[in-house]
Write a protein that binds this DNA or RNA. Structure first.
Lengths: 310, 310
DNA sequence: GCGATATCTCTGACTGAGTCAAGCATTCGG
DNA sequence: CCGAATGCTTGACTCAGTCAGAGATATCGC
């Protein structure tokens, strides 16, 4: 049950945060909340009090008192905001920046001590996992299209294509190991020998991790390109990534002078089919076959690249 | 910088925990700390006050007062411990269990509301990431040899072999994409056609995720097997995984009747070489070559499988 | 067995982080 | 121009959590 997992994590992490502050000297002579305010100020030095309130969800009176203290200690200066005299603009003084840096340093030390218990080989996994938790929980903001980036494959990405194709089709359609063999063959052929001007692979990246791919290779027929291995991870669907990948292939194929673009798929892959249709592919042939441990309907689709460009 | 990542995560998660408690009704009529005590009691019903103190690191006086309140409310009963009359044994009453259940239910709801913002496709990633953070930070208990399991590859594992070989050798030795092509070729050949009685792949699994692999295939020479693609993830090194993988290959090859086991490696892979030596492999030939964008010394190693079995 | 010391618990006294409500100044919507 | 809303401040308060002392009992050295 996911809720229980999350609650267990909350209990655990409450202890972690508590343990970091064990000596009770971390924030002296300020409190955790004061130190959060100071941090916020140090990282966006020209802020209105109202922004601090919403950002840290503090009580207005509480914040006002905290800022009083900071002003007495010479950490900040308060002026009224230009565009709204009710608002107070808060700016850090040099002394305030010093203090913020001091607190940051202490926090660094404390966290460093915690991190020292983690083998350095594991640290990338730790930061990766923390980033995952953050992005998934951060107000559930759904990723936007602009967060997705298309790029060329780097080390390991071709293997990733094989792994994710095999795992996803096994999970979603029950394909057996033959499918992984097919994909591995396609990828190996590409990796071993391809003309970078006429053949290419794109990786769709979201928050630094691959979430989709597509390949464009020469076909046997003259002046014909073949689109292969279109894939979008379930968690990244609905962002138009499939469309962008297909567009990339179409544009590329047209740009380097192919006259036709073909692809082979199966009718069970309905989402993919709609993407192809949107880009103007038409069904050229359909044939039942038994592959990957399933009875399937193979489909050949074709898009003429000459003619009217929309 | 990892420390900064962790601190960012701490700030973030402080907000998450704060937000969960937003309505301020979560624990009413008790406080967070009281509710933690109640939780602890509900999950180990027969506890001494001293245990609670150490477990939750509470002030003795504070805990005493909390227990007073609980006793007045009829949630607990206090008796003196048998083995030490100074200690107080605390047991939940039926009413105490009810209250604990009620609080747990409210917390579940609150967490459930948070989780509702996470698309269900992402939830496995969330719990996985949380588990990773917990296991890495919780006392850094190093994994033990018994936690590692050798198994046959499942869907996606062959692709994983390609991906991790390529990524690791690129990171550790600067190999270029040619190496990924070579691995992809080897894996594709295996996936497409292999004799399961004479050729096999092993995946080493730690806590449910792959951390190592090795392959055994027929060689061109008669009655000769070839060991390929031995790999152990950095974070799983030092657990004897390499030895276990090589042992698996040696035992398998000997068991199915091969007379020789050969392998090709490069002298920069010193850790792997030591593994091979431990298993009795001897260096048969060495030859410089330029591959994968590097000048390397290729080595052929050989182990006779007939003769004295140790 | 006895004294010195440590441990467990409880209570009184206190601190101070955070909340609530009222009031003043200003902007916004009509 | 008026009522409502927003931003900030201050006074008054609550109550979570800390600290110190005291009583009871265990443990250790002798």
């Amino acid at each position: 049950m996911t809720v229980q997992d999350v609650r267990a994590f909350n209990r655990f992490y409450t202890n972690v945060i508590g343990a970091l502050d064990y000596s009770r000297q971390l924030y002296a002579p300020y409190t955790l909340t004061e130190s959060r305010v100071l941090y916020e100020l140090a990282h966006s030095p020209r802020t209105d009090a109202a922004d601090l309130r919403t950002e840290l969800s503090l009580d207005a009176g509480y914040l006002s008192r905290i800022l009083n203290k900071f002003e007495q200690d010479g950490l900040i200066e308060r002026t009224t905001s230009h565009r709204d005299p009710r608002r107070r603009r808060v700016t850090l003084t040099a002394r305030g920046r010093e203090t913020a840096a001091l607190l940051a340093e202490r926090a660094d030390e404390s966290v460093g001590a915690l991190l020292a218990t983690v083998p350095s080989a594991d640290r990338p996994r730790l930061t990766e996992a923390m980033r995952t938790v953050r992005t998934l929980l951060s107000d559930g903001r759904p990723p936007r299209r602009e967060d997705v980036l298309l790029r060329e494959p780097g080390p390991g990405d071709l293997g990733w294509i094989v792994a994710r194709n095999a795992a996803l089709y096994a999970a979603e359609y029950g394909f057996n190991a033959d499918y992984e063999a097919l994909v591995a063959r396609i990828v190996a052929d590409f990796a071993e020998d391809h003309d970078p001007h006429l053949e290419r692979v794109w990786i769709a990246e979201l928050d630094g991790r691959p979430v989709g791919c597509v390949m464009c290779v020469r076909d046997d027929a003259p002046a014909t390109a073949r689109l292969r291995l279109l894939l979008v991870e379930p968690e990244a669907r609905g962002l138009g990534i499939g469309d962008r990948l297909v567009s990339a292939v179409v544009d590329f194929a047209r740009g380097v002078g192919y006259r036709d673009l073909v692809l082979w798929t199966n009718d069970v892959l309905t989402a993919a089919r709609r993407v192809y249709q949107r880009h103007g592919f038409v069904l050229a042939a359909e044939k039942p076959h038994r592959s990957f441990g399933k009875d399937l309907n193979g489909q050949d689709w074709r898009l003429e690249l000459t003619g009217t460009r929309e």
